[in-house]
Design a binder for these strands. Structure first.
Length: 576
RNA sequence: CGGUGAGUAGCGCAGCCUGGUAGCGCACCUGCCUUGGGAGCAGGGGGUCGCUGGUUCGAUUCCAGUCUCACCGACCA
């Protein structure tokens, strides 16, 4: 490709609304441009990277016996009403009507459509296992799109759906996809973790997320420093270490804590560590059910765990007015003792063994000292509802401690069980001619998000450093002076030779000063660069520069070509 | 939707407080010059100052409304 005839609109200045580095660099490198909030044009360079990654995904999907197809972006409401998600999905589902007033939506995911197709076409146990996938544009009307391709409203996703005769077979399909995902992200050279995850609105029994590690990641994940356990904090469990209650239970005693609302303030005021206090939070469901959560003062509530424990659809913190009505007290002084109205009280497991703790008295400016569970209050349930913290003991092995990371969710695999097949009546006949419900799994990869995550993980002050497998071009040839006929002729020859070898080359033939070319080439992240100048040429040599390391090799022309070819080939090779 | 901030040339910004019809840097066009890390000189093009209404002789500037965008909270590939 000739740079002068191609389209790479780079910019020097960072657009002011781009916050994370991948967004800034994709804009500056001319890969994407915003059309509307969370909706982007993929410019040629951006598209090339995306296609590269899509092809890796495609290869691994095919290898894992998934079959490619393509489903529509626009979907009829009936299917969603049938699965129950028309009501459940909320505003994220972009809905509209056609000229006949029939309701439709932009597909945010395709469980309904694929299940509909499968229930019509798959009739026998002989047709399974089967797994369909597509690489297609999704639309989710996110409340807050941000970070460029990281969280767009319109985005490209690879989604696949497996269909099996029973749960065991479905587990096998799941494992196959899990392994394919591992290979996909390994092939891209990404530093990632597969972690246990909450199933969220997709539903189903269990799932793993694939998280690219990056400080800008929106998810917190933990992993054990000793065994293979890793999980999203939403889901992560730690081993409960039962600390033995220290000392005798003292007498419950009401004490004034004027204006001390936060745990830190109360603890300081009473001269105690925060772990001797109990925090009480009032939560509400979407149907206005309420519950009080109790946690050790230094711990954080995990809303997902609480939501799941209560079987709620949604969870939110109660408003100040609701709290006042239920407890008779303003927030900051809440506790389980002497509640005004009957309220479900859920305590974290670690509250169980606390002795002589400080709790709110449900009265402005008042707390209790020496509160003891079992004696002074009896929670309805003890459940794990706290966020694990770094240093917690691993729940899966004896010696491990948990470490915390930030991650970008680039892939997610779910065991769906019969959630959709049951609702939509997708059945087959088994060997005995008996009708059975199909078992499903679904698997997604954010294509654009993975490219953004790769940039997030691979860049320096000069720009992007693409891993070769997903780089828009493998190599560039930079002619130092476009007016120097000898330099241009030699550059062109190298360019053509490399192309003949199957290397994807960007030939920077522009009549620009060298500095401009170097800056642009660094910014757009081409992994390898051959620089052709008149001085080197006088000795029959050109330079090979490696973007990632900054290493420069001065080599005879043929050797330079061979070096580039060898580097590209070895980078594209996947070692099992 | 709630909270915060911003809308002035393609991008990054100034001007607004103290009304008088708009400016800087980059980018773009022409010419000269230059060619190993975003050069220099000269000339040039480009703006209904987000939109609507009000106040005023006169509004980018003051007032009201409205739209859009970004950031902080719940969702997710």
């Amino acid at each position: 490709m000739l740079y002068s005839r191609y389209f790479i609109p780079t910019v020097k200045e960072t657009p002011s609304d781009a916050e994370v580095i991948s967004h800034q660099l994709m804009l500056r490198a001319g890969m994407i441009r915003k059309l509307a909030a969370g909706i982007y044009n993929y410019l040629p360079m951006g598209l090339r990277s995306i296609r590269k990654f899509e092809n890796i995904v495609r290869e691994e999907m095919n290898k894992a016996d998934a079959i490619e197809m393509l489903m529509p972006g626009v979907q009829p409401a009936e299917l969603w009403q049938e699965s129950g998600r028309w009501a459940f999905y909320g505003k994220e589902l972009l809905r509209f009507k056609d000229r006949k007033d029939a309701e439709f939506c932009m597909g945010p995911t395709h469980e309904e459509v694929i299940t509909d197709m499968v229930r019509r076409e798959i009739k026998s146990y002989r047709q399974m296992p089967i797994n369909f996938y597509q690489i297609q544009t999704k639309f989710r009307d996110e409340i807050r799109p941000r970070f460029g391709l990281m969280r767009g409203r319109e985005f490209i996703m690879k989604d696949s759906y497996s269909f099996d005769v029973d749960s065991q077979a479905a587990d096998k399909s799941y494992d196959k996809m899990y392994n394919a995902y591992m290979r996909i992200f390994e092939r891209c050279g990404l530093n990632f973790r597969a972690v246990e995850a909450d199933t969220g609105s997709i539903g189903g029994s269990s799932s793993h997320e694939f998280m690219v590690l990056a400080d800008s990641g929106e998810d917190a994940i933990v992993s054990c420093d000793s065994c293979r356990y890793a999980a999203n904090v939403e889901k992560a469990e730690s081993r409960i270490v039962q600390e033995n209650a220290a000392g005798e239970q003292a007498t419950l005693e009401k004490t004034a804590t004027p204006d001390k609302k936060s745990i830190a303030d109360v603890a300081e005021f009473l001269g105690l560590a925060t772990d001797r206090t109990i925090k009480a939070l009032v939560c509400a469901s979407d149907t206005d059910e309420f519950a009080m959560a109790l946690l050790r003062g230094d711990h954080e509530l995990n809303e997902i765990k609480l939501k799941n424990a209560l079987g709620w659809n949604e969870i939110r913190m109660a408003t100040e007015e609701e709290v006042q009505r239920l407890t008779g007290s303003p927030t900051g002084f809440l506790g389980p003792v002497g509640l005004k109205e009957k309220l479900l009280v859920v305590a974290d497991l670690l509250v169980q063994n606390m002795t002589n703790a400080v709790i709110g008295a449900n009265e402005k400016d008042m707390h209790y000292r020496n509160a003891n569970p079992g004696r002074d209050f009896n929670p309805d349930r003890f459940v794990d509802i706290r966020n694990v913290v770094a240093g917690d003991c691993c729940s899966r092995c004896d010696e491990g401690k948990l470490e915390m990371w930030r991650g970008i969710e680039v892939g997610h695999v779910f065991k769906l069980g019969t959630k959709y097949s049951q609702a939509m009546n997708a059945t087959y006949l088994d060997a005995n001619g008996k009708e059975q419900i199909i078992f499903m799994g679904c698997y997604g990869i954010g294509i654009g998000r993975t490219v953004a995550a790769a940039i997030e993980q691979n860049h320096d002050e000069n720009g992007i450093i693409f891993p070769i497998p997903i780089a828009p071009f493998h190599c560039s040839v930079v002619a130092i002076n476009a007016k120097d006929k000898g330099v241009m002729a030699e550059s062109e020859e190298i360019y053509l030779k490399l192309e003949k070898l199957g290397i994807e080359v960007l030939f920077d033939d522009r009549d620009e000063r060298p500095g401009v070319k170097f800056k642009d080439n660094d910014l757009i992240g081409i992994p390898l660069r051959i620089v052709v100048g008149s001085k080197g040429l006088a000795e029959g040599k050109v330079e090979v520069k490696i973007r990632a390391t900054g290493e420069v090799l001065s080599l005879p022309i043929e050797e330079a070509i061979a070096t580039v070819q060898q580097m590209v080939t070895s980078a594209l090779e996947y070692k099992e």
